[in-house]
Simulated scan of single mutants.
Amino acid sequence: MCRNIKTLFNFEPPATELEIRDASLQFVRKLSGFAVPSQANEAAFERAVEEVAAAARTLIAGLVTNAPPKDREVEARKARERSGRRFGGG
């Protein structure tokens, strides 16, 4: 799994279209092995990003939970703390 793909479900405020697209782009990059596709592959690459983003929106909209929404700032702080412990920077 790409470490750059973040959890998008059950956050307040909800995931933005840009966050969904960015996660979809990272996923397609990982699958294809291309950071930037060639002109010959650009249309297929972009179509895949849009299809993955559509599937992600459908998934997020269909999921349910009884857990309270997570706070973005709190989760970001926890991630920084984990990173600091892991890499010794904080």
Rank of each mutant, 00 (worst) to 15 (best):
T65D: 07
R72Q: 07
F11W: 01
P69G: 10
G62R: 11
P13W: 09
V36K: 12
R47N: 10
V49Y: 09
A67Y: 01
N66Q: 11
E42P: 00
S24P: 03
T16S: 15
A54N: 10
N66I: 08
L25N: 09
P37N: 01
A56K: 04
N41F: 13
A67K: 10
E73R: 06
A35K: 09
E50T: 01
A53L: 01
R29G: 03
V36W: 06
A56S: 10
R29W: 01
E46Y: 07
A40T: 08
A76N: 11
I20R: 00
R57Q: 14
A56W: 12
P68L: 13
L59I: 05
P68M: 11
A44N: 06
E46S: 13
E42T: 02
F9M: 02
F9D: 00
R29N: 00
V74S: 05
T65M: 09
L31I: 13
K70M: 14
F45A: 03
L25H: 06
S32Y: 03
V74E: 10
N66M: 08
A54E: 15
E75K: 09
A40V: 10
P13K: 05
V64T: 15
F34P: 01
A67N: 10
V28L: 04
N41C: 05
I60C: 04
A55N: 07
E50K: 13
A55R: 11
R72P: 04
L25R: 14
A54H: 08
A56F: 14
S32D: 02
I60F: 14
I60K: 03
L63F: 13
D71R: 01
E12Q: 10
G33V: 07
D22Y: 04
S24H: 05
R57A: 08
N66F: 12
A76H: 10
E19Q: 15
A61S: 14
A61Y: 02
A55Q: 11
N66W: 04
A61I: 02
E73A: 10
Q39N: 11
A76D: 14
S38V: 02
F9P: 00
V74D: 02
E46C: 03
L18Y: 08
F45Y: 15
G62F: 06
A76E: 15
Q39A: 13
A35D: 13
A40F: 09
L31W: 11
D22T: 08
